[in-house]
Simulated assay, not measured.
Amino acid sequence: MIPDTTGIAEGAALLRVLANPARLRIALHLLGGERSVGQLEEDLALKQPNLSQHLGELRDAGLLVARRESRAVFYQVAPGRPRHLLASLLHGLGGAASAPVPPAPRPPRRPVAAASFAVVRVAR
């Protein structure tokens, strides 16, 4: 079934964002799982200011979601249609089998120290 006019326009807008080779490369790389900006910079050999601009455009288009942990920002492919679209593009480009792409694993979280309180009684 072919989407209605609105769906076609939304699809064309997403494809325009992905038409940039660097953005497509970033999005397809993130199908492998969540990565920090620093990891993406290292993995893809892109300079941080340029990388951040591309990540912002992908996020604004709804293709990526971000989360902040302390000073680091982590990106992953948005669930649902964006993940399916990118998996289909990857398959069409010869980069993966036709099996659906599993959800990206989350990195292990560092334990966070909790505050503890003690009651001190003073003997009189």
Results as ranks from 00 to 15, higher is better:
residue 112 V to L: 15
residue 76 Q to D: 07
residue 100 P to A: 09
residue 37 V to F: 02
residue 122 V to M: 02
residue 56 G to V: 06
residue 110 R to A: 11
residue 33 G to E: 07
residue 23 R to H: 05
residue 41 E to P: 00
residue 113 A to T: 12
residue 76 Q to Y: 03
residue 54 H to V: 02
residue 62 G to W: 09
residue 64 L to V: 02
residue 12 A to D: 09
residue 41 E to C: 10
residue 15 L to W: 09
residue 60 D to Y: 02
residue 104 A to Q: 12
residue 46 L to P: 01
residue 46 L to Q: 07
residue 60 D to Q: 12
residue 10 E to C: 09
residue 53 Q to G: 05
residue 53 Q to S: 09
residue 88 S to E: 15
residue 15 L to I: 11
residue 33 G to L: 07
residue 67 R to M: 02
residue 80 G to K: 00
residue 57 E to A: 14
residue 56 G to W: 06
residue 13 A to N: 04
residue 55 L to E: 01
residue 105 P to S: 10
residue 124 R to E: 14
residue 42 E to A: 14
residue 105 P to R: 07
residue 60 D to C: 04
residue 116 S to F: 09
residue 83 R to D: 00
residue 73 V to S: 09
residue 1 M to G: 10
residue 87 A to E: 12
residue 91 H to N: 15
residue 8 I to S: 09
residue 31 L to N: 05
residue 56 G to H: 10
residue 33 G to D: 06
residue 92 G to I: 00
residue 29 H to W: 11
residue 11 G to N: 15
residue 52 S to Q: 13
residue 87 A to Y: 06
residue 78 A to L: 00
residue 17 V to D: 11
residue 4 D to A: 07
residue 63 L to Y: 01
residue 5 T to Y: 14
residue 86 L to N: 01
residue 118 A to V: 05
residue 79 P to H: 09
residue 38 G to N: 08
residue 112 V to W: 10
residue 117 F to Q: 12
residue 96 A to C: 11
residue 69 E to P: 04
residue 97 A to R: 12
residue 63 L to F: 01
residue 106 R to W: 09
residue 117 F to M: 08
residue 120 V to N: 03
residue 99 A to C: 02
residue 110 R to I: 03
residue 119 V to H: 06
residue 40 L to M: 08
residue 101 V to A: 12
residue 58 L to C: 01
residue 106 R to T: 10
residue 89 L to V: 13
residue 34 E to A: 07
residue 26 I to A: 01
residue 29 H to S: 09
residue 70 S to D: 14
residue 49 P to L: 00
residue 100 P to V: 04
residue 69 E to N: 11
residue 64 L to W: 04
residue 63 L to D: 00
residue 107 P to R: 10
residue 112 V to P: 03
residue 3 P to I: 07
residue 7 G to L: 14
residue 11 G to E: 13
residue 43 D to V: 01
residue 89 L to I: 15
residue 97 A to D: 12
residue 2 I to L: 10
residue 118 A to L: 04
residue 74 F to K: 02
residue 99 A to S: 13
residue 57 E to P: 05
residue 121 R to G: 06
residue 29 H to V: 03
residue 65 V to E: 15
residue 41 E to G: 02
residue 30 L to Q: 05
residue 20 N to G: 07
residue 71 R to A: 11
residue 62 G to M: 10
residue 39 Q to S: 01
residue 5 T to W: 14
residue 49 P to H: 00
residue 34 E to N: 01
residue 22 A to Y: 11
residue 24 L to V: 04
residue 68 R to S: 11
